[in-house]
């Protein structure tokens, strides 16, 4: 008969503990893990799809007018994020990526914000030929004249 589980007891005695040595040994996360967001502003086209699909409204956009064009700043608040990856899935230009970084510990909430800004140029203005300009002017004059006529015919005026 002998002692029950004696083999198990001896193997357990010499096996490694199941505790992970976390702070000493950094842990690798599995593939497909959704961690801290990475934004590539050079790829973004400012379509605003990510803001639409974001359930916790963690994405904000500010638009500044500059000489070169509109300066667009996208701000992703990781403190408010649910890491659902919808923004990355809906991004047609793949400018949003979810990295494998999982440790987001801060004392100041602003450190959790991921920002990226880029300049979007306005389309160049069309150069009109003199004939086209004359045509436009004539059309405008005709419209104004019509308006004036209507104004004159109004009995209360």
């Amino acid at each position: 008969m002998g002692l029950p589980f004696i083999k198990e007891a001896i193997t357990q005695l010499f096996s490694k503990p199941s505790t992970e040595k976390y702070p000493l040994v950094k842990k690798e996360v599995s593939d497909g893990f959704r961690g801290k967001l990475v934004f590539h502003p050079e790829l973004c086209i400012n379509c605003g799809m990510c803001m639409r699909v974001c359930a916790p409204q963690a994405i904000t956009r500010t638009i500044e007018k500059t000489e070169e064009g509109d300066r667009i700043t996208m701000e992703f608040h990781m403190g408010s994020c649910t890491f659902c990856s919808m923004c990355a899935d809906f991004c047609s230009k793949n400018s949003i990526e979810l990295s494998k970084e999982y440790s987001m510990v801060v004392t100041n909430e602003d450190d959790l914000k991921v920002r990226g800004s880029f300049i979007k140029k306005a389309p160049p203005k069309k150069e009109l030929s003199p004939e086209q300009l004359a045509k436009l002017k004539a059309a405008k004059a005709a419209k104004d004249g019509k308006a004036e006529e209507e104004f004159d015919s109004c009995p209360d005026a």
Binding site: P23, C81, T82, S103, M104, V105, V106
Partner: peptide, 25 residues
């Protein structure tokens, strides 16, 4: 609030980091 640990939910490793920071504070 002194420390905030982001994540939904945070990984246990991140929570350990957060608690370590809290102990320091």
């Amino acid at each position: 609030v002194d420390v905030s640990v982001a994540g939904c939910t945070p990984k246990p490793e991140a929570i350990i980091d957060g608690l370590a920071l809290a102990a320091q504070i």
